[in-house]
Nucleic acid binder design. Structure first.
Lengths: 262, 262
DNA sequence: GCAAAAGTGTTGACTGTACACCCATGT
DNA sequence: ACATGGGTGTACAGTCAACACTTTTGC
């Protein structure tokens, strides 16, 4: 990567005087969310190096010279956890407060991932262990201690996911290729931590154009009962009308404000 | 800024080998939106230097060593356009595709700003001119030619603003300190490019807790008519229920998908 | 038959929209 | 007086939550 700069590039490098602007490192971090044994969870890796050794952190790392940001996020996720790479991934936010990394100035572009349950995430190169933690435990005292500002990133990711389930069909990103409406409903119930009325949920989903596509087959429920029809993702990107969270008036709105207000 | 690095920092610098990772420059760009003579508009500056000389661009520039990202956005906005600095500013998205700047690798953290009408934005240091352009013209052929990937950033900012007006009280960010409900309604009409029913709009706003606070005074409408009551911003950060755009079903949803889908 | 889960029908409360109408001011 | 825009009342239509009820399976 040490070629002769063009005149344009040289001009840029003059403006970008490395004495005035010592390099800022650009990293990506991924908050991969999933429903793990019925609980809304986030993938974390245990750090093997200082600083924050033996703390838990989001998988992530440096962006390579000619690599797109999202490609970097996908690569880090694969390297550190072996998660398959066709999952939904979207940019969440960038975090660049001076001092967020004690080793030097970094700006981290965080990504939000959503995937069906992953059986065994493997700890990769720089990650000692990798496992899913229920998001309810991450904020509280009895959960894992998070490195850097990753607790903030996780909180933002969780709230973004909760909100996106309202007006996009992304709940299907947590489902397998084929799923029943009960599967889909359990996604909503786990993410929002509420109970939903199955008959009304069914009607809402089916009346929303492009949310799900019916398949011919049926699946047997685990504990016995009538077989349920199977569906796959539809082609809609937005829900009309939205699937609003129940009882979102007044008091609950406190938690949401973090992500929304900036 | 040339001090002796600590052991931790040195370790970081070893990991962050500048040969493997040639510096990525971090910049901020600001899409400042406002209602200018009744039209939903974005602030652009005409570039005085190559590349993209005499093209129009968003105000922005390099992040300084010990500067928070949002502070950098606010500083660049003040330097290049003289816009007052108490306006609403929130992070929009980061753009880092290799090749987006022909001079070298950059990652730009874009911010979305909302402000009341600004009388005379002044072109600052590196900006030849600064002016507001109606967003409807920016995308089309007869509008300004935009530098870099700023057309994408503007499109994302516009869609984010349209969407935020639905579920937050941010329309008030476009209003002066004191405003009438007709002022507020004209904000919605300009941003969404629709006509709203004044009586129903009034009821919706007043029934939404914390959206606006009534003041004692009244203001005379410009062309004669009954004086209107004045209001100021309320303390809500989210609207319950939301102010949904009329006729948002099916066909119109095409444009929205850009920002939402990633 | 009974338990369990899928799926259907019905009702009453609530919300959004359209529009008729009244009120207060300038000219 | 009348034009202009602010503000109120009302009635209809659509949506949503609650829950009773039917269907199809395993045991």
């Amino acid at each position: 990567m040490s070629r002769v700069p063009s005149a344009e590039e040289q001009k840029f490098l003059d403006e970008y005087d490395p004495d005035r602007y010592p390099s800022i490192a650009v990293t990506v971090d991924v908050a991969l969310l999933t429903i793990c044994s019925g609980r809304f969870s986030v993938l974390l890796v245990e750090r093997g190096n200082h600083p924050y050794k033996s703390y838990w952190a989001l998988p992530g790392g440096f962006v390579e010279p000619d690599e797109d940001l999202q490609a970097a996020a996908r690569r880090e996720l694969a390297e550190e956890t072996g998660v398959r790479d066709d999952i939904h991934l979207e940019q969440l936010c960038s975090y660049g407060t001076p001092g967020r990394d004690p080793r030097g100035r970094t700006v981290s572009v965080a990504y939000l991932g959503m995937s069906p349950e992953v059986s065994n995430p493997v700890g990769g190169s720089d990650a000692a262990h990798a496992r899913f933690w229920p998001v309810a435990e991450v904020g509280s005292g009895d959960g894992p201690q998070l490195a850097f500002d990753h607790d903030v990133i996780v909180a933002d990711a969780v709230e973004r996911a909760r909100s996106k389930l309202e007006y996009t069909p992304l709940a299907t990103a947590f489902c397998e290729e084929q799923f029943t409406l009960a599967d889909l409903r359990r996604i909503y119930e786990a993410v929002w931590d509420v109970q939903l009325d199955a008959p009304n949920f069914r009607r809402k989903v089916l009346s929303t154009h492009g949310f799900v596509e019916p398949l011919g087959d049926t699946a047997l429920p685990p504990g016995g009962g009538r077989p349920a029809r199977l569906y796959r993702r539809g082609d809609a990107r937005l829900l009309h009308p939205a699937m609003l969270r129940p009882g979102a008036s007044a008091e609950e709105s406190l938690a949401e404000q973090r992500v929304v207000q900036e």
